[in-house]
Design a protein around this nucleic acid. Structure first.
Lengths: 246, 246
DNA sequence: TACTGTGAACCAATTCACAGCC
DNA sequence: GGCTGTGAATTGGTTCACAGTA
């Protein structure tokens, strides 16, 4: 390993400590990881930023800049070694270790997640499924038995759970979040359609199906009113009278 | 209505045409809408930007700027009329009309979505559930009968579907997307863990459960390596030797 | 030669801070 | 006095374009 390579690595490390990896970049690393896995399965050993970017659905400049936050893992004139980069990204994300997950609220969505293979394959271990409903408690989903909500704290402790998934109705989400946090969970994935408040230092990510649809509806509407000759569903605002004339 | 009010409305309309509402703002409008609905149910008639922002989990400056893209719907010194603003946002998003949705791929997740009440309550109508599996086709989920994938195009035509939801395995997602687009669908919500390519003008939003978990894992790992005395799971980079000394 | 890695330029989004209005 | 609406300042993210190098 040359001196200049050392220097570059040191600079990358400095950069990382100064500002850390940008959030937008972190959110794309799993996408790159998936693209690399697909390429690896196809037997591709080396890929240029252009190829990789195409597989990940981004442009190549963005991909190169993203990867540069992790270090200099490519080779000029050649590209990236698929396996090597895959390992580096895995490590950066933290997938070289396993994370225990508890799912709270075993309705339709909770059941679907419990059965979802993609969880288990990527370093996530479902430690427990929990619900309040006495009808559900004790029944089996795959290899898991649904446990009682009253035992939530014990389960978190026993299985060293660090990530909680909330799939309860909206009304219970905040209460569940509070209990998760008190029991030591520091990352929450919230599927309940409500805002939850957590203390500083606890990460929350929100997935909201109906919000996604509403965003699409907004764009649908815009298309309909702009390029079609269609009249908007309701008067847009007072000024539209002027435009419409008649 | 005063002249100055008219002028303000006209300016807001101009602003909207010049640049449109920013994407980041569009993504938050459904959140505000939900917050307003909760307030309305609690009998609150008027809310300040501060109150509303708290209910929506954002800061008040952001909320005010967001709302300003729609027009001037507040009253200085008072706040926003909850019902009036609720209607204005609904209209902006396009929820004053119904949107027909087809769900393709009725596995765990597809079933969960088909049963999810939040869809139907907010102006979305599930027009059809579609799958390739002959075992599934013909069986009932709630009020719906699962239909054959071969009839996808007909169903889209017949029910005037504009939004497609993909809950198939990754390998089939692109093919499904192609068929949806060819049949006239212009918005897609993709739950399959793969990148899909669509022509210009078709909106795609992606929801990926395992990516969300991976983002949380990244932050978990960072917490563990920074504030704990814990050793990183693997050597971070050559420079860490220097720091660790021994 | 063909590619990466990255400053510099650009664009989008957020936050500040206050003028304008009820 | 208390609030909204919004220019101006700032921060964060993306894209350009090319120097550096295997």
């Amino acid at each position: 390993m040359t001196d200049s390579r050392n220097r570059r690595a040191a600079q990358a490390a400095d950069l990382r400590q100064q500002r850390g990896t940008p959030e937008a970049t972190v959110a794309r690393l799993p996408v790159y990881l998936r693209a690399l896995t697909v390429l690896a399965e196809q037997g591709v050993a080396t890929a240029s930023s252009e190829q990789l970017a195409a597989a990940a659905g981004v442009n190549s400049a963005k991909l190169r800049k993203d990867l540069s936050y992790l270090g200099s893992y490519g080779t000029r004139g050649v590209g990236y070694d698929v396996e090597y980069l895959r390992y580096q990204i895995s490590r950066e994300i933290g997938l070289t270790q396993d994370w225990s997950v508890v799912i709270v609220g075993i309705g339709n969505l909770g059941q679907a997640l419990a059965n979802y293979a993609g969880f288990t394959t990527r370093g996530f271990r479902i430690a427990a499924l929990v619900d309040t409903d006495p009808e559900l408690v004790g029944s089996e989903i795959g290899v898991h038995t649904i446990e009682n909500m009253a035992d939530l704290e014990q389960l978190i402790e026993r299985h060293q759970v660090s990530i909680g998934v909330i799939t309860t109705p909206a009304a219970e989400a905040q209460n569940v979040a509070d209990r998760l946090v008190r029991a030591g969970v520091t990352s929450i994935l919230n599927f309940a359609p409500s805002v939850i408040n957590v203390p500083e230092g606890v990460q929350v990510r929100k997935v909201d199906l109906s919000i996604e649809l509403q965003i699409l509806a907004y764009h649908e509407q815009r298309k309909a009113t702009v390029d079609g000759a269609e009249v908007p569903p309701a008067m847009t605002d007072p000024t539209s009278k002027v435009v419409e004339a008649s």
